[in-house]
Design a protein around this nucleic acid. Structure first.
Length: 612
DNA sequence: CCCCCCCC
C-alpha cells in the first residue's frame, strides 16, 4: 500500500540548503506541541522524513494547526508538501537553527495504513548552510530590515534570517510597527519594509530609444496608507516577474525610491525601482487591513455623456467577443493587434471594450464572464463611445465582488435576453436624440467646431447622385473593402492583404449632392447606405453594369429627387492649406413621418416660445 | 532607464 507513495529521498537536504523542490512527499514520524508563551498561537513541531534524512525542526504554519488537532497527522502519515518556506532561527547570535515551515500540505496516506519507511538518519545541521548564497551580513542586529536575507532564486522559496528564537514565523516577525506605510516612503530613508498588495502588474514590455533599449515591467502596490508604482528594468525583470502575482501580499524592502514624474503619477509623489538588492517575500496571511482594489463603477449608459479621454471603472458581462484584428497603425507604422469585447450591464446598454496586444491574444471570453475594469479610457468612433483597456487598467475576469455576483444574477435571470443599446455602434446615433440641423446650420457649426466634427440629422433630397466612380471591385475578404487591381489574368490583387484572389466583391461608394430648404452639400457614404439610396445591393448594381455599361446613369437618375433622413457627421479637413467640409452620411433612413412630424411640431412650438 | 495603449 505504502509503495504507491515513494518518499522524495534526499529532498530534505536540498530544501534545507535553500533549493526548491516541488511537491516533495514526506513521512511524519512524530509531532509535539511547542511550549510557547503566547497562548493564542500554539505551534507544533514535526519529525519529518524523506526516507533518507530526518529533520526534527519542521513546523506547521499556525493556519493549518487543526491538522494535528484532528489527528490527520498521526505518526507514519505520508504527506505531500505543497508550499513551504525555510527559515533560520538565530539564537541570539550563538547558533543558527534551520527550520522548515509547512504552509500547505495534503495527506496522501493516513499513518495507520503504513509503517515507517526506510531508515532515515538525522540531517546534519551544518549541511544546511546555503552554498555561496549565504548572507554575509547576517550578524544579528536590531534592524529588521537587515534580518532579511536574499531570496532564493526559486519562485516560491525564500530564505529568511530571524533574530528572535521564539518567533520563527516570517509573517509574524515583520508585522505591526516594523512595517512602514507606503505613504511614508521617500528618497531620504532607505531602511524600510512595506507590506503591500499587488493591485496590478504589467506585462513585460521592451523599449528602444535614443538612450538605449531594454525590457521592463511595473506593478502598482497598495496598502492602507496609499499606493506606489514600482518598476523593474532589464535583468531585474527576469528575477522578479514570475514570482509576482496580482492580488497577493508581499513584504518588500531595499528598492530605490525616487521622485515620480508628475505627468504619469497622480497617486504618489514617488515611485520605486526594483534593484539587485531588493527583497520580496510573499506574505501568506490573509491580512484584511491590506486593501483590495477599490472600484468606482459607472453604469454603461452613463458613458454616453462622459467626455472622450476620461478614465473610468466599468463592470459588465462579456456578451460577445470579436476575433483578433491585426492592422498597422498609420501614425507609427507599428503592427497592432486588438480584440473587441462587448460588455453589457443592468442599464441594458452595451459598450465595446478593446483589449490590445498580448492581452487580446490571451483573452478567452466564450463563457460570457463578468469583466471588471479599473481605469479604462473612453474613446469615440463614428459618434459612438468605446473603452480602451490600457496597460495601467486593472482587468479582472469574474472577480469575487458583490457587483459581479449581482450582475451575474441579472444576466442569468432575464438580462441575457434583453435588447441592449450598444453605445459604441455608429447607428446608435441614429436615434431621435441626434440633433436636427439643416445643412446650413451644420456647415456653420462645423467650421466652429472643426476638431470634433458635428453629428446631426436632416431631411434632405437627393439633388444629384454622382454615378462616376460609385462602384468598384473590392477585396473579397470580409471587412477588407480595399479596391483590388485586375491582373488581367483572372486574378485580383489586394494591396492591403498583400495577396491575389480569383474573385472580388462589388462595392458601392456613394456621393450625392443633398439639399434641404437651407442649402445643399456634397455628402459621401459607404456601401450599406448607398444601397439604400439606390434601392439595390452592390452586387445587383455590379451585375447591371456588367450587362450594360450605361446602366449606372439610369440608376443614378432613379435616385435623384428621392428624400431621406440623413444622419451625418460633418468635419472640416485641411489638405495643402485648403480647408473644406467633409460630410458623411453615416445612416440613410426612409422618412418616418411620425418622428419627423413630431420634430417639426416641437420646432414650431419652440419658435412660438412654447417650451414643450 | 518607461510614460506607448494605437485602427476603422
Amino acid at each position: 500500500m505504502a509503495d504507491k507513495f515513494r518518499l522524495s529521498e534526499g529532498a530534505l537536504r536540498l530544501i534545507m540548503k535553500g533549493d526548491q523542490v516541488d511537491d516533495p512527499i514526506m513521512q511524519v514520524l512524530g509531532s509535539k506541541r511547542i511550549a510557547s508563551a503566547s497562548t493564542d498561537k500554539e505551534r507544533f513541531r514535526l519529525l519529518l522524513s524523506d526516507g533518507k534524512y530526518l529533520v526534527s525542526y519542521a513546523m506547521l504554519t499556525t493556519q493549518i494547526n487543526d491538522k494535528i488537532a484532528n489527528g490527520e497527522l498521526a505518526d507514519n502519515t505520508i504527506i505531500r508538501v505543497k508550499r513551504y518556506i525555510t527559515s533560520v532561527i538565530n539564537n541570539g547570535g550563538k547558533s543558527n537553527k534551520h527550520v522548515l515551515v509547512i504552509l500547505e500540505m495534503e495527506v496522501l496516506l493516513p499513518g495507520d495504513q503504513t509503517g515507517k519507511i526506510g531508515n532515515p538518519e538525522q540531517l546534519p545541521d551544518n549541511d544546511t548552510e546555503p552554498d555561496s548564497t549565504t548572507n554575509s551580513n547576517n550578524a544579528t542586529t536590531n534592524d529588521h530590515v537587515n534580518s532579511l536575507s536574499k531570496p532564493a532564486t526559486s519562485a516560491s522559496t525564500y530564505r529568511c534570517m530571524l533574530n528572535k528564537p521564539t518567533n520563527i514565523d516570517l509573517n509574524v516577525s515583520l508585522q505591526d510597527h516594523h512595517i512602514h506605510p507606503i505613504s511614508s516612503l521617500n528618497p531620504y530613508h532607505n531602511k524600510w519594509v512595506i507590506k503591500a498588495r499587488v493591485a496590478n502588474k504589467s506585462g513585460i514590455r521592451k523599449w528602444s530609444n535614443s538612450r538605449g533599449e531594454g525590457q521592463l515591467f511595473s506593478m502598482d502596490l497598495i496598502d492602507e496608507s496609499g499606493e506606489i508604482r514600482c518598476t523593474a528594468f532589464r535583468d531585474i525583470v527576469d528575477k522578479f516577474y514570475e514570482m509576482i502575482e496580482v492580488d497577493k501580499i508581499y513584504y518588500i524592502t531595499k528598492c530605490q525610491v525616487k521622485a515620480a514624474n508628475k505627468q504619469f503619477s497622480i497617486k504618489n509623489d514617488y515611485e520605486m525601482t526594483l534593484t539587485h538588492n531588493t527583497i520580496i517575500q510573499e506574505c501568506y496571511d490573509a491580512d484584511i487591513s491590506v486593501p483590495q482594489t477599490k472600484y468606482d463603477f459607472i453604469s454603461i449608459d452613463k458613458i454616453v455623456n462622459i467626455e472622450t479621454g476620461t478614465i473610468v471603472d466599468v463592470i459588465g458581462i462579456c456578451k460577445s467577443v470579436s476575433e483578433i484584428f491585426t492592422f498597422t497603425a498609420r501614425a507609427t507604422g507599428r503592427e497592432l493587434k486588438k480584440r473587441e469585447l462587448t460588455l453589457v450591464d443592468q442599464s441594458n446598454s452595451g459598450i465595446s471594450a478593446t483589449l490590445w496586444g498580448t492581452d487580446a491574444e490571451k483573452f478567452e471570453g466564450s463563457s460570457q464572464p463578468v469583466i471588471a475594469i479599473k481605469g479604462a479610457k473612453i474613446g469615440e468612433f463614428g459618434g459612438g463611445k468605446n473603452l480602451s483597456i490600457l496597460g495601467s487598467s486593472i482587468f479582472k475576469i469574474n472577480p469575487d465582488i458583490p457587483e459581479s455576483h449581482r450582475l451575474r444574477g441579472w444576466f442569468e435571470n432575464g438580462g441575457m435576453q434583453q435588447n441592449v443599446t450598444n453605445i459604441s455602434s455608429t447607428s446608435s446615433i441614429g436615434g431621435s436624440q441626434t440633433q436636427w440641423l439643416n445643412l446650413k446650420e451644420a456647415q456653420n457649426l462645423s467650421s466652429e467646431d472643426a476638431e470634433k466634427g458635428v453629428y446631426f440629422q436632416t431631411k434632405a433630397t437627393v439633388i444629384m447622385f454622382r454615378s462616376e466612380n460609385c462602384l468598384y471591385k473590392s477585396c473579397p475578404v470580409d471587412d477588407c473593402k480595399k479596391k483590388v487591381v485586375d491582373m488581367e489574368n483572372g486574378m485580383y490583387n489586394c494591396e492591403k492583404c498583400g495577396r491575389q484572389y480569383p474573385n472580388f466583391k462589388y462595392r458601392l461608394l456613394g456621393s450625392i449632392n443633398a439639399g434641404d430648404w437651407s442649402g445643399n452639400q456634397w455628402i459621401s457614404m459607404f456601401a450599406s447606405e448607398t444601397e439604400k439610396v439606390l434601392g439595390m445591393t452592390s452586387e445587383e448594381v455590379g451585375q447591371a453594369v456588367e450587362a450594360n455599361p450605361q446602366a449606372l446613369a439610369d440608376l443614378a437618375d432613379k435616385a435623384n429627387f428621392k428624400q431621406f433622413i440623413l444622419k451625418c457627421r460633418a468635419k472640416t479637413e485641411t489638405y495643402n492649406d485648403e480647408t473644406r467640409l467633409k460630410t458623411v452620411a453615416i445612416k440613410v433612413d426612409n422618412i418616418s413621418y411620425k418622428e419627423y412630424n413630431a420634430h417639426l411640431i416641437s420646432r414650431i412650438n419652440e419658435l412660438q416660445g412654447m417650451k414643450n
